[in-house]
């Protein structure tokens, strides 16, 4: 029996289970096409806000060694109107538009802009750890989470995912509020709040000071969060955090993820190889284990 790499994340069907994480190479539709052609099952855009944002001065993204990265980009993005214009002619790439804002009306107004575009879904960023008033500050307030998810859901005609991270409050309360408000799935996790200090310059390595840690060092944290969400809620999950090899991707699926996002891995591998390598590795693993679909493996490690 042929095994299939198809993945089903709630209402979202993907030809392949690997997805580009938000904020990584996330503004150019030509690059989206290239990555999709090179194996990505879907592309999550950079988080888009109502107005364009330049982001913080540098350094904004710094490698830490050991496959770890710290970033505080400051959510630079071209704004919803310009981004909708850029993806208007897309017909082939499954794009998931990531949205960020602080009030429910911002989300519904942005969704209205994208409704004419060919997109596969939305991801609500409830977890950016380094910009005031948005991201984690929304995610930390379950009441606001619920209003934001409701506003997005009621305007959207495609699936809506809520992306969570580790903030001040219990992230499982955020998950619960998003599910109650009608989210079709959860993406977990965003970067983990961190600080990296340069001892020669005697100051933080990022201009913003605090940033978000991503890459290999957060892989096991992501596995833990995905497993917790999977065991406590009946909701499809896109796992994200520290995936750089097919083994990492399989581990997240076995922890409960229906699909897997890759972010920092693009920083150490070729954009033309990373997705295909992980997909091929997953396919070989499935064959060896006699598994026919990704779905069969979801959460198996904790069943």
């Amino acid at each position: 029996m042929e095994s299939s790499l198809e993945a089903q994340v709630g209402p979202l069907r993907l030809e392949r289970p690997t997805v580009l994480a938000s904020g990584i190479l996330g503004i150019s539709v030509e690059i989206f096409g290239r990555l999709h052609g090179a194996g990505a099952g879907a592309i999550v855009s950079k988080s888009i806000s109502v107005e364009p944002r330049d982001g913080y001065p540098g350094p904004t993204v710094v490698p830490l060694g050991g496959g770890g990265w710290i970033n505080a980009v400051g959510l630079s993005n071209p704004g919803a109107a310009a981004f909708a214009g850029m993806i208007r002619d897309n017909r082939t790439v499954p794009i998931i538009v990531s949205l960020v804002g602080s009030a429910p009306e911002e989300f519904s107004s942005m969704v209205e802009r994208f409704e004419g575009c060919h997109i596969a879904g939305y991801e609500i960023n409830l977890s950016c750890p380094h910009v005031d008033d948005v991201g984690l500050e929304v995610g930390d307030d379950p009441e606001l989470v619920s209003r934001v998810v409701r506003a997005t859901k009621s305007a959207a005609s495609v699936p809506v995912f809520a992306k969570v991270g580790l903030g001040r409050s219990d992230y499982l309360d955020t998950v619960s509020a998003a599910i109650d408000a009608g989210a079709d799935g959860i993406t977990a996790i965003n970067t983990v709040q961190a600080l990296a200090i340069d001892i020669e310059a005697q100051r933080p390595k990022l201009s913003n000071g605090i940033g978000g840690l991503s890459g290999i060092p957060i892989g096991t944290i992501a596995q833990r969060c995905v497993a917790q969400i999977h065991s406590q809620f009946d909701i499809p999950i896109m796992g994200c955090g520290g995936v750089s090899t097919w083994e990492d991707a399989v581990a997240l699926v076995l922890a409960g993820a229906s699909a897997v996002q890759l972010g920092s891995a693009l920083g150490y591998g070729s954009p033309d190889r990373v997705f295909a390598d992980v997909n091929d590795g997953i396919a070989r693993y499935m064959e060896r284990k006699g598994v026919r679909s990704v779905r069969e493996m979801v959460g198996r490690a904790l069943a």
């Binding site: 996330g26 993204v61 990265w69 970033n71 980009v73 630079s76 920092s264 693009l266 920083g267």
Partner: peptide, 9 residues
């Protein structure tokens, strides 16, 4: 912004 193929700028 990154120089390393992550940010897309």
């Amino acid at each position: 912004k990154c120089g390393t193929g992550i940010c897309g700028s």
